[in-house]
Design a protein around this nucleic acid. Structure first.
Lengths: 147, 147
DNA sequence: ATCTTTTTGCAACCCGGTTGCAAATACAGT
DNA sequence: ACTGTATTTGCAACCGGGTTGCAAAAAGAT
């Protein structure tokens, strides 16, 4: 695992990109940094709102590239939007996330329960398992306390 | 639980619809039956292909209604399409499915592992849990054997 | 049978996302 | 640094899945 979210220097985003064999263009660094600073799984739409100077097609292409090079994890949270999450582990080859996620039905945010690993189940013999998405839904702490 | 999928009489679909307080129109029975006969979680698009005589807006409205009346479970399988699954349990109030699902990355089908319940995790105190989506991904038995 | 309410199909629209293309930028070789 | 090649970018047009406004059709009530 890595240190807490949102505490990375620009240098580190550059490094992260290079390490995955992706050419570190200005846009790509911006997208990676936006993902990192968000601190939680982020949809393309949200990135467009954050990075107003970039065209949505550029962001789309960045994400596609990051996906292909395993720089991000991809997950669906039930809000029919795909979300992306930076992956700081160098050798991670799965596209999904390995920990539990929580989708708040009130505020629409998705949280990483980074310290709760996904409990695995036993599948029938002839199924090959590649990855698992575990999405819990309900009301998050801050929304709950607001009422 | 209920008997095996795809063995329901038309009468039963009618019953199911009525039991949930929905007026059983011809279209609604068709949609419910299509869902039931599919025997696995089905996307709106797939339903449109099956029910060529119905307009997609009619199907959309059926599904919205079924959702509101807890007649179907809703789940996302990672193919950016929402899938619907008939729920035969009368008093089920959750929108999600309670068992594990498996998405085959080769054929794109989603399978219900009806007999594998979702293992629950312990969330932080102040999170309220409503439901859980457990989606395993990989290669299904028949796709694996084809190679 | 007539009036009222609900449901339906069509077309138009919406939203998130992708793609074709030409301009801009970065890179390589000399 | 200069020129030629490859990559990246922004724009606009497009795409797919889905929803909505509206008028016609069907169902229900009196």
């Amino acid at each position: 695992m890595h240190e807490a979210m949102g505490k990375h220097y620009d240098e580190e985003y550059l490094q992260l990109i290079k390490e995955h064999g992706v050419r570190p263009t200005a846009n790509r660094i911006l997208v990676a940094r936006a993902l990192g600073r968000a601190g939680r799984p982020t949809s393309q739409k949200e990135l467009e709102d954050i990075l107003k100077t970039l065209d949505k097609s550029s962001i789309s292409r960045c994400l596609t590239l990051f996906k292909a090079h395993h720089l991000v994890h991809v997950l669906e949270d039930g809000s029919e939007a795909v979300r992306y999450e930076l992956c700081w582990s160098y050798s991670c080859q799965t596209d999904d996330d390995l920990h539990v996620h929580f989708y708040c039905e009130v505020c629409g945010r998705t949280f990483c329960m980074s310290d709760i690993p996904i409990p695995l189940v036993r599948l029938p013999e002839d199924y090959t398992l590649h990855s698992v998405n575990y999405m819990a839904k309900g009301v998050c702490a801050s929304c709950r306390n607001k009422n």
